[in-house]
Design a protein around this nucleic acid. Sequence first.
DNA 1: GACCAATCGGAACGATTTGGTCCGATTAAC
DNA 2: GTTAATCGGACCAAATCGTTCCGATTGGTC
Lengths: 136, 136
Amino acid sequence: MRLSNLADYAVVTMSAAARHCGGGRTSAAELAAETGLPVPTVQKLVSKLSAAGLLRSTRGSGGGLQLARPAAAISVADIVEAVEGPIALTACIEGTDCTVSHDCSVRPHWPVVNQALRGALAGIPLTQLALEKEPA
Amino acid sequence: MRLSNLADYAVVTMSAAARHCGGGRTSAAELAAETGLPVPTVQKLVSKLSAAGLLRSTRGSGGGLQLARPAAAISVADIVEAVEGPIALTACIEGTDCTVSHDCSVRPHWPVVNQALRGALAGIPLTQLALEKEPA
DNA sequence: GACCAATCGGAACGATTTGGTCCGATTAAC
DNA sequence: GTTAATCGGACCAAATCGTTCCGATTGGTC
């Protein structure tokens, strides 16, 4: 019931990247310096986020990173899914079935919880997280 | 972003125990036979659930298990917290702070997501999960 | 045109948590 | 008092997560 540290770091990293969106170009080392995360860890996160289509990476010297989409169009759910795969509380949802699905009467109810969770995450755009202080 | 198998099994086990609530007494072996889970695994779950105050265990021969509270007063959130500890997506919530909380602008927003998730889980009582078929 | 420097991408290692199994302590019944 | 059945805790193996390192690619510079 806790998302992995990588997912947490990914959110922080994306939040830092969103602030650099104005310049359009930043690097993994830059983001690592700002977030305080280890550089290799950020590199790994950048790889996953790029593969998921959230970041646009440019290789070579003078290369860098930039958001593939506007910050307002990126939600926490997108970031979490990019790092941890599809949001599914149980294996019943994405996988075919449980290994013990004899009379699994709870299975029909998991999608409800799953959607509630995903909706909560999808309702928070990256722009809100990039704010320096909480809105309220 | 996925709860552990133990938590999933715990929900199934509690669901099975709720059906035996009428008799008031059942055993870990009984629940294991019905759910198809390994007996030792169910024993481990029973230990945790009892420690959390969700199950009442009676030792000795002829002993058994029974729900400590009415099924309607037990929610999925209770079961998950019993097995996995407090529901906290990030270490920032329960722990003192992140190890990299320099300018962690996302920290103020986690409790919102956390409460949304917990609310979704707390809104499903055990009685609903014990139904043979989905309500709709 | 060739060299060099900087960056991302993937692969390998180690640590931590999770899941499964076993044995002992406790208790009621006989 | 003995026996039998149960829960409770402790040990061990496995999988995943997290970190680190190395190689492939690309742009700038001479």
